[in-house]
Design a protein around this nucleic acid. Structure first.
Lengths: 189, 189
DNA sequence: GTCTATAGTTGGATAGAC
DNA sequence: GTCTATCCAACTATAGAC
């Protein structure tokens, strides 16, 4: 008891996330989650106040990781390579246990908008985007920054990229999207 | 055919799409759609067999448009600029009445996967991606092709890009993502 | 910490009148 | 072509026993 706590809470998180990512938030019922864990719905309610609360708990973990990265990156002293360093660390996150969560976020946008759980995460995303675009305001840079993040997420999806080096490929594309454009030299136009 | 048919069917499509795009497919009830049109649920069932059928009808319209583009692009004789021509026409589609539908597709992936309405459209998407990547198999090109399409969609979202020239910006980024890399050596031409 | 049982809602879909 | 009325399934969430 003292040293070892029940891992049911974490198992709920993992099973729920897997189902949410696969078939969406609304389509996934608490009954289904409970069945996969061989427990009952009521058991879920012991660990989480509501269904939405499960998502919230998942988001908090990601928010913490993003905060760590943001703090670390802001302490860097090589401003020219900050974008690169950030993306490399975010890439690690995406390749790791957070793949499905990112995928879920990208593919359930309308649902999350109504879930008012988005806000805490949305803040961090904005901060990440600002670092990537280096505060640059022009729309092209803004769009590229967003696409750089998307490259990491969809590039790490085995259904999109079969290649086993998909992680590196995704990072490559992301880095290129994030790298500052040379002033547009319209060749003799 | 009679000259003037009821436009209720089309009004259902438009209202439904607006709600689907805004709050997602599952969260949007037939009751809600009916209320916005000042009709009853039963009236909806006269025009569409099921809720899913509404989505299907929307998809068919897009599939037709994509088929036209694909046919047109394949008839082009300047192979070097096929990618560009395709993207320009898809951009027009996305800027027009299909914005919301594309957005809906991108943001409701898990739902659509289970809706088995995806297939007819998925075929066309694959064909479009093949044209963009020019049949090139390497993962980097494949990822770029996908991102090029995403650039058009999210770039045309006013919530993402406030700038009024967002359409051009999106097309610019898409074209660059789709243009063949110099880095990788062209083999065996 | 997990159970059974159930309350309370809401949703998709149908029948039949007009 | 649109209505009223209704059925039935499924869901979230709670109460209370063990």
């Amino acid at each position: 008891m003292a040293g070892r706590r029940s891992d049911t809470r974490e198992r709920i998180q993992q099973v729920a996330l897997a189902l949410f990512a696969e078939q969406g938030y609304e389509k996934t019922s608490l009954r289904e989650i409970a069945e996969k864990l061989n427990v009952t719905k009521a058991a879920l309610y012991y660990h989480f106040k509501t269904k939405e609360d499960i998502v919230a708990s998942l988001f908090e973990d990601l928010a913490v990781s993003l905060d760590e990265i943001l703090e670390w990156v802001r302490a860097q002293d090589d401003p020219a390579r900050i974008r690169e360093k950030l993306l490399r660390r975010v890439a690690k996150l995406v390749e790791g246990s957070f793949v499905r969560l990112w995928q879920f976020i990208q593919e359930n946008q309308p649902t999350l908008k109504e879930l008012h759980v988005g806000n805490p995460l949305a803040e961090r995303m904005t901060a990440v985007l600002e670092v990537i675009s280096a505060g640059e305001q022009d729309p092209s840079t803004q769009l590229r920054a967003r696409l750089a993040l998307m490259a990491l997420v969809i590039g790490n999806n085995p259904e999109v990229l079969a290649d086993e080096r998909r992680g590196e490929v995704a990072l490559d594309v992301a880095l290129e999207l994030a790298s500052p454009r040379g002033r547009k030299v319209d060749r003799a136009t």
